[in-house]
């Protein structure tokens, strides 16, 4: 299933989420169960499965990591369900350091340190995302593998961000 085609959008990483939302609502209207009240059972079934596709497609294209994974999948690289491990030592060292910093903050309850880390994560994510955007425009196999590595890094960053938000929430309790 090519979700870009479903939403009649070019298959690129650069998606305007407001525009995507408009397209989503229009597609939803067209497959709404009310429109199929007098239709045959088969048509009703088709409408239901199309609604499910539209919902999946919207969730996938709305979120940058899932959108990037979908683009990679369309280019023949499936990393969604991979169990492969990453061995980039310097990247992992950095991840360890950030995890340790988060651990320290959860003990020290230092809100300023948490804000500072939030900025650091934000800048790092922005830098990787910008590179990813260029890499995903390519069809060259080695560039696509490099793009996949960038998406993997963003997945680690998403995990760090979840942890940070959890700690920040606890600071306000």
């Amino acid at each position: 299933m090519n979700y870009f085609e479903l939403f009649d959008l070019p298959a690129t990483f650069d998606v305007d989420v407001a525009d995507l939302s408009t397209r989503y609502r229009e597609l939803q209207k067209a497959t709404h169960p009310d429109r199929f009240a007098n239709a045959s059972e088969q048509q009703k079934m088709l409408a239901v499965s199309r609604t499910a596709q539209i919902n999946d497609g919207f969730q996938t294209l709305k979120e940058p990591i899932r959108r990037a994974e979908h683009l990679l999948e369309l280019k023949g690289v499936d990393i969604k369900n991979e169990t492969q491990t990453v061995k980039d030592t310097s990247f992992l060292m950095q991840q360890m350091e950030w995890r340790e910093a988060l651990e320290d903050i959860s003990h020290s309850r230092d809100a300023d340190a948490a804000d500072e880390l939030e900025q650091t994560f934000k800048q790092y994510r922005a830098a990787i995302t910008e590179q990813l955007q260029h890499l995903l425009a390519s069809d060259d196999a080695s560039v696509i593998q490099n793009a996949a590595d960038h998406v993997r890094k963003l997945k680690f960053m998403a995990k760090l961000q979840d942890e940070l938000v959890r700690i920040q929430d606890a600071l306000f309790e």
């Binding site: 990393i79 369900n81 169990t83 491990t85 990453v86 030592t89 993997r152 890094k153 680690f156």
Partner: peptide, 13 residues
């Protein structure tokens, strides 16, 4: 040995 699992963001040393 440093390794990480992108699926869940786990890191192991």
């Amino acid at each position: 040995g440093m390794v990480g699992a992108p699926a869940c963001g786990d890191v192991m040393k």
